[in-house]
């Protein structure tokens, strides 16, 4: 099983080069990293998984972007939105990860969305950067959202991914540290390790067999 940080932002978005990020991630216990708009590469034994990050609010536009990108087959990550939007997105083909659920309104990702995510094999991303970087009320709100998400996860067992959203090598956290941080919102260590393995396996998923005559 792979151990993947599901979203990093190297230079020029951040202050660390892709190679340096890979080097540091390897030292912290990861064997792959997901990087938006990066070519598929391997540095210092760490696999770079390319991804496209979609922050659109119109499902039609998202559908078009996925179709336009169809042949390249990177990991497709879409920012979550309102309840109806999330349900529509989860029904689209070609989406791998629904991210930034903590930024949406409470109940925008509900039991129906959770069941859909489980059925469609779409992973939900847990972004650890607000847990690491913020404090006080804003961190408490994010923890509450993640607690709700973990409750739904325990019931419907959809896939989870975990990301540090690091823009610098100083924002990266080790696998053990991620386990401890996830403990703050009651995510079990086994589930964390499973979640760290999800992003690496999402692209390898085999679809239903189609008979060509």
């Amino acid at each position: 099983m792979t151990t993947t940080d599901a979203c990093l932002h190297p230079y020029p978005d951040g202050n660390s080069s892709l190679r340096r990020m890979a080097l540091e991630a390897g030292a912290l216990g990861f064997d792959s990293i997901v990087v938006p708009d990066a070519p598929p590469q391997e540095y210092f034994g760490v696999r770079v998984i390319p991804a496209i990050l979609i922050a659109e609010l119109n499902p039609r536009v998202i559908s078009g972007l996925i179709r336009a990108n169809g042949q390249k087959q990177p990991l497709v990550m879409v920012n979550a939105g309102e309840n109806g939007f999330n349900r529509e997105i989860l029904n689209l083909k070609g989406i791998h990860i629904l991210r930034q659920v903590h930024k949406t309104r409470k109940n925008s990702f509900d039991h129906v969305s959770a069941r859909l995510a489980a059925e469609r094999g779409v992973a939900v991303d847990i972004d650890l950067s607000p847990i690491i970087h913020s404090s006080g009320l804003s961190r408490q709100r994010v923890m509450q959202r993640y607690n709700d998400l973990v409750t739904l996860f325990n019931r419907y067992r959809f896939s989870l991914t975990l990301s540090s959203n690091a823009c610098s090598i100083l924002d990266l956290r080790s696998v053990e540290e991620i386990c401890l941080l996830c403990g703050l919102f009651s995510l079990e260590e086994d589930d964390v390790r499973e979640g760290l393995g999800t992003a690496g396996s999402l692209l390898d998923q085999k679809g239903p067999v189609t008979v060509v005559t």
Binding site: S135, S168, I169, L170, D171, R173, L180, L184
Partner: peptide
């Protein structure tokens, strides 16, 4: 556990980014 978790949330000291 608590100390390690707290250390993981330290991001800056005296306006300087640290880990």
């Amino acid at each position: 556990k608590e100390v390690r978790t707290a250390l993981a949330t330290v991001t800056d000291m005296a306006d300087q980014r640290i880990a």
